[in-house]
Design a protein around this nucleic acid. Structure first.
Lengths: 336, 336
DNA sequence: GCCTGGAACGCAAGCGCTTGCAATGGCTTA
DNA sequence: TAAGCCATTGCAAGCGCTTGCGTTCCAGGC
């Protein structure tokens, strides 16, 4: 760090003062000179000003619940890329089995002087203790964005995929194919997007008895769907692609074919879902747009703009592949 | 930020010099005075420099090239979990399109006072500039482990999957099924595991003309495999599962069936590969064991143990599913 | 031509912080 | 008890950077 300014000034042939102004983006420097100084900076191997200079590290925390579900790595890539373009470095924090809770990560991130935090897919609906760390963020006025994780009481800006539309789409698709006994496999009861899907499912007139909660994993989907299959559903709407794959497995284990006997709809459209057997019909989250919106909201807050604590709802999109088909004839016949 | 030092000095009743020494962790300050200064800092609401946060910096950096390939999130989960059990928090760093290079991350991690770094799957074979940051780690004696990323010249402990055995297994499997015209789809030329697989492929007597290099993505695999398929291969060994899925797609696009006309072998056995169409035959990396070994090596270094800079080789395992079958009869006939 | 205004830039003072050095004072040792 | 030592601390010089203000220079109006 020694004599940086003087060295650059000498190389360009200007005064230290001018270099200082360039580095801090101050006015009173011609474009040509500014360019020359920046070039010299690069030539001498110094970091560009925006990166790390002055006060705080340009770090942003990205807190995810897991990495098993491919949607989360995908989301991390989108957000990480968008942040990088804005000159921020993202620090990815994942809850791990043994240990680290969301609150721990918030402590850690505060300690590391992050400029902001993005939470995705967390369990924010829990009533009590778990909220302490959000209030901490709020007190410290640390820029924060929640993705698919509405917390009603706290006014953070939020970006979400519209679960109401997603559930409507899925149910409508199955009904159009003649399905009437439709089941639903959701995540844990305190998972917000799952709650919203459940509400929509019920308000669409589906049977709340045919809803199962489970963990977000293939095995969880398998177990939950096995119970549904036994109760004779012909179509299943799942809250993630992983759950859908588990559901397909459960149907087959019960001797049924997908989609001939049971139709299955996933949610997310994570990677590789067009390579599965059968290719999965699923409701796509526009994670690209959502990730970029989350970053925009975050950066706006970091730049001291006033960001309304609204929820930005993104429209999902039904991707019809081959895991859904007309309801089996006998099922339709039985209903006549 | 103005007059921070003077303000604190006045409050504690010492000189600015002493406060400065405390803030920088310099010697020559009594414990009592040091404590008083830190307390005053907190009282005045200033952030302590992270260095002085006691023993809280149990951080480990985990540097990955990407998250698209499901093997990396999976690896991150294993390493993150194992570290959490040892009381460490992992900070996941991924290179992003726009942005952040491995060297940037090393700077960042050094600045955040991490206890160690795990690198996985990087491109360490590059000859020149890219090595600066490794030497930096070496100079600072920061505990480091490389996974599947042998750097010949630097003596870091390494954990790898045995690429020689992996390539042998794949080739042997295809030959046992009667394949003779075997192709290979690899990652970039400077990717170490790909290099090793290439060497084994050649030393096994396969045709080096039937080797293609590409990016590690489904699309890359598609493009590379299309060239191989045109040249009449009946079996393809791929350096990742993603490449294998691309290869299957290329074969189908050319009007061929998998595995009836072309057999495809992947590498990694990442998640969901038993859900694909057809379920993928692949060479499994024991990432669980590798991840734990990497963490053990790292923690041993952190605990000041002397760890030999050897490469720990883990044996892969052939998982036979349904993307490989006997070579088509006409191909075998043509060879008689 | 001259005057005027403003952009561009350097000078140098000054700010916040670091650091060499010497003063201080408690503690050990002869 | 006196001498010596060394940890602790303040003083003040100095370093790297910022910034108010003055100078220079050029364009355009009169």
């Amino acid at each position: 760090m020694t004599r940086r300014l003087a060295e650059v000034a000498k190389k360009v042939g200007v005064s230290e003062a001018t270099v200082s102004r360039v580095l801090n983006g101050k006015p009173g420097v011609s474009d040509a000179t500014r360019e020359a100084v920046l070039t010299a900076l690069d030539v001498l191997g110094y970091e560009r000003p925006t990166q790390l200079r002055g006060d705080r590290a340009r770090l942003v925390g990205l807190v995810l619940p897991e990495l098993q579900n491919p949607i989360f790595p995908a989301f991390a890539e989108v957000v990480g890329g968008a942040l990088a373009q804005q000159g921020f470095t993202s620090v990815l924090c994942t809850r791990t089995v043994g240990g680290v809770s969301e609150a721990d990560y918030v402590d850690l991130l505060l300690q590391q002087q992050v400029s902001g935090v993005v939470f995705a897919g967390g369990l924010y609906a829990q009533a009590d203790a778990a909220h302490g760390h959000y209030e901490l963020l709020h007190e410290r006025k640390l820029p924060t964005v929640l993705v698919n994780a509405a917390v009603a009481r706290l006014d953070f800006p939020q970006v979400s995929c519209d679960d109401v539309v997603a559930a409507e789409m899925a149910v409508a698709h199955l009904r159009a194919l003649g399905h009437e006994r439709i089941g639903m496999v959701l995540g844990p009861k305190d998972h917000m997007p799952s709650r919203r899907k459940l509400e929509t499912f019920v308000s669409e007139g589906c049977d709340p008895e045919l809803v199962e909660h489970t963990m977000f994993s293939l095995e969880g989907g398998h177990a939950a769907a096995a119970r549904l299959v036994r109760r004779g559903v012909t179509g299943v709407v799942c809250a993630s692609d992983l759950l859908a794959l588990g559901t397909i497995r459960a149907a087959r284990r019960a001797g049924l074919a997908v989609p001939a006997d049971v139709s299955v709809i996933g949610f997310d459209d994570s990677a590789l879902m067009n390579c599965t057997e059968p290719p999965l019909t699923t409701v796509r989250q526009p994670i690209d747009a959502m990730g970029r919106a989350a970053v925009d909201l975050l950066v706006a807050q970091i730049d001291k703009a006033v960001v309304p604590a609204d929820e930005l709802l993104f429209e999902p999109e039904l991707v019809v592949r081959a895991s859904t088909a007309r309801a089996p004839e006998e099922a339709r016949a039985a209903r006549r």
